[in-house]
Amino acid sequence: MDKANREAFLNNIATHAKRPRHQLANHPFKPLNNLPESTLSGKTQDQLLAIARHSSEEVHVDFRTTAKENLAAAINDYLQHKNIQHLILPTTDLWQKFSLADWQNQRSTEHTAYWEPRADRQTNVQRAQNADGAIGFADFLLAESGTIAVATVPGQGRAFHFLPTHYLSIIPKSRIVPRSRQAMLYYEQKIKSGELTTSNINLITGPSNSGDIEMVLVVGVHGPLDMTYMVVEDL
């Protein structure tokens, strides 16, 4: 960055505003209310699940729940229902956590690709482009809006969520939170502590859509044509 370019620009702003620079340290932002935190607070996980289901279905999400031991069968049902032939999966140790290692091993390598941490851009992007389905893991499900929150990591990149035709997101029931505020507090804290290194956080609310032609809602434009949330009862 050209410091002189920046200084001239910022000084110009200060001059027009008739306010001196470097006052922020003594005047940090203090919100006048706590609505972002208090809205939908105090709900049980079952209540949040009900809210999440309602919100998700409002935005055309196929919302499913399953017990952990039935997860593999539920995924197979989904793949059959959507007639998905080529699947892309993330590289993550969450497969073990969700007891899906056997399911993974049984997948035919011909029809299954992985987003690989060590692969180059072209390889991973092309794999996502060739896939007609993706199964990803979300960090959170936001009950209020039916939104999955997911940070980009080496094993699950950005285009992973956007190029495949169909998308299934797996979310533990314990990770349903009231709103976007709780997700943002988590990411802030994890980034600050160095536990999370990421260049990208996605809040994804249902399939892509547009009303650009005569305000008629078209579901499925550039991103996935449909979205399925699979909430796993893990409590």
Binding site: V59, W115, E116, P117, A119, D120, R121, T123, N124, V125, T147, T152, V153, P154, G157, R158, A159, S180, T197, T198, S199, N200, I201, N202, L203, I204, T205, G206, P207, S208, N209, G223
Partner: peptide
């Protein structure tokens, strides 16, 4: 549908 917070790729990311 999409609210995204993004910056430049980190060293371990491929896209």
């Amino acid at each position: 549908s999409y609210c995204t917070f993004a910056g430049p790729q980190t060293a371990d990311e491929s896209d």
